[in-house]
Simulated scan of single mutants.
Amino acid sequence: MARWARGVRWYVRELTGESAYDRYVEHLRQHDPDAPVPTRAEFERRRTDAREADPRSGFRCC
């Protein structure tokens, strides 16, 4: 049962994009350990801004 619950949790985190921040922090620490790590809110704001700026993303209809 616990294995099933972990699998569901992993799937939901991947589906919602919640794990993107964790992967970003891990990547940042591996490649530039001295760089400041943005807060989750800052990361999400930058991510949203990047999607809105890209007309190919289909993020906005207009």
Rank of each mutant, 00 (worst) to 15 (best):
V12L: 12
S19F: 08
M1S: 11
E18H: 04
T39W: 07
G58M: 06
G7H: 01
R29E: 15
R40Y: 10
A2G: 14
P55T: 00
L15W: 10
R47M: 08
W10Y: 06
R9N: 06
P36N: 07
R6S: 12
A50R: 11
E26M: 07
L15V: 08
C62H: 11
A20C: 13
D54I: 01
E14W: 07
V8F: 07
W4Y: 13
V37P: 00
A35Q: 05
R51D: 11
R23I: 10
W10A: 12
A2P: 02
R51C: 10
H27D: 15
F43C: 02
E42W: 01
H31A: 14
E14R: 08
R6H: 13
R47D: 12
V25G: 04
P36F: 09
H31F: 11
R60F: 13
R13E: 15
G58N: 06
R46H: 08
A53D: 09
C61Y: 09
G17V: 04
R13W: 08
H31S: 15
D49I: 00
T16E: 10
D49S: 07
T16I: 06
P36C: 04
R23M: 12
R46C: 05
E14N: 10
V37L: 03
V8Q: 04
H31M: 10
M1C: 05
Y11A: 15
A35D: 06
T48E: 15
D34R: 09
R23F: 09
D22R: 07
D34P: 00
V25L: 10
V8I: 15
M1A: 13
R13P: 00
E18Y: 02
L28K: 00
E42G: 08
E18Q: 08
R51W: 13
A2T: 11
P38C: 04
R45G: 00
A53T: 01
P55A: 04
R6F: 14
R3L: 15
V12C: 02
Y24A: 06
R45L: 06
S19M: 14
R40L: 10
P33I: 05
E44M: 02
H31Q: 14
R51Q: 14
V12A: 03
G17Y: 11
W4S: 02
R13K: 13
P55E: 09
R9Q: 10
V25E: 11
A2K: 13
S19Y: 05
R56D: 15
R51T: 02
H27T: 10
T48R: 12
H27L: 11
G7T: 02
T16G: 07
E52I: 02
D54E: 12
R29K: 15
V8Y: 05
C61T: 07
F43G: 00
D32V: 03
D22P: 01
